[in-house]
Design a protein around this nucleic acid. Structure first.
Lengths: 208, 208
DNA sequence: TAGATTGTTAATCGATTAACAATC
DNA sequence: TAGATTGTTAATCGATTAACAATC
């Protein structure tokens, strides 16, 4: 790893390691070898060791990895050892689903939703208040938030992202089927639902 | 391409080409070159031509690609020229969001939701009826459906997937944070929301 | 025809797998 | 100590980019 640059392939796999280690932890496993993880996860043991080597040396020859220790280290690498603050822009079906998804358990604290619909403003969704988009600027200044979820109609996506980036949010979790450009120092992570189902359709089509 | 085997990287990109061609079509563009697409999409022109070459030759030297023709060919490759029938297992927040997401415009016709909650059974969500999970078998036999959306609690995910696969569904669109094994001849496409936000957290963490 | 742009081949780059010495 | 398993280096594989002849 060199100042902020890691292989995208590794970045995409790390949460999955974290997930399996959480499960091992729940089952009170104390140690795990790359070979055991390999057969659990369906990836090669070599890849697991290679991936982890990106960040350091967490195991012990002849023993394997301490489950709790490795889980903790990966949590630190992922940055989920400290809580994140989220705001959700758009209180439609997707915004509501995210607000109700129980992300707090994973360290992602949903602080508020923002919408333009007067009927929704002032209500709560799964315990999270809905505010007017007009009050976003003041809210973000007061409370801060590092991640904004973009769950607005496609036509409003780019301007919503520009707005939150301009207000100091550093990362956008984009649920629209629009590609959003990240500004210098900003990040965009996409959940392109329509692309996902089309990929499934494609694979189905190729499967004779 | 050789009997059903294409590069996963290409499979993941093809829906995005389709999306940009749809936009061009709406803007009444008649032709587009790989160079124009390249600067629109932020991928190399070389990659676009290489990707398309997986499936055939759709352009013309000195001219580029006919937008409508290429869009149509990619639609055929994706299998979205004919409608797909979906059922959604689980009428919670995610299931509702998918039911209300307007997938029909893209050729994905959501026929029904299935849930175990008596309060929901018999109601409609965005025009789509909610049935009892117990009636799934009869329903699928009568109407068929090629894709099932798994939007149940994580603990129920694997058994839900096994059930729909055993009833003849060939593809599962999985929204739980559980990894589902595809049976012989079956497919699983994952939307791992928790992995996605963790990847975002990781990238944020690496960004100094 | 001349200019433009494809389809395709070859070169480069990155990611995965295999192998093994180091060592707990 | 002997066996097990890591961390790491080298080999392989696949994906991306560059280059260019073919041709509209």
């Amino acid at each position: 790893m060199e100042n902020g640059c890691i292989s995208p392939a590794v970045a995409a796999r790390l949460p999955r390691y974290h997930r399996y280690l959480s499960a091992l932890l729940e089952n009170s496993a104390t140690r795990v070898s790359s070979n055991e993880l390999s057969s659990m996860m369906g990836v090669t043991a070599s890849q697991i060791r290679q991936d982890l080597a990106t960040f350091g040396a967490f195991g012990q020859q002849g023993y394997g990895y301490g489950v709790e220790y490795l889980h903790g280290e990966i949590s630190k690498i992922l940055g989920v050892d400290k809580p994140h603050r989220l705001v959700i822009i758009g209180a439609g079906n997707i915004g509501r689903a995210i607000a109700c998804h129980g992300l707090k358990k994973l360290g992602f604290d949903v602080k508020a939703l923002f919408d333009t619909d007067k009927k929704l403003i002032g209500t709560k969704i799964c315990g999270t208040p809905v505010y007017a988009v007009a009050s976003l600027s003041g809210y973000l200044k007061a409370l801060g938030a590092d991640i904004a979820v973009i769950a607005v109609p496609a036509a409003a996506a780019k301007s919503a992202a520009e707005l939150v980036f301009s207000l100091g949010v550093r990362a956008v979790w984009n649920f629209t089927n629009v590609d959003i450009d990240a500004p210098e120092g900003g990040l965009v992570e996409n959940v392109h639902l329509t692309d996902s189902i089309m990929t499934l359709a494609l694979r189905l089509n190729l499967l004779r």
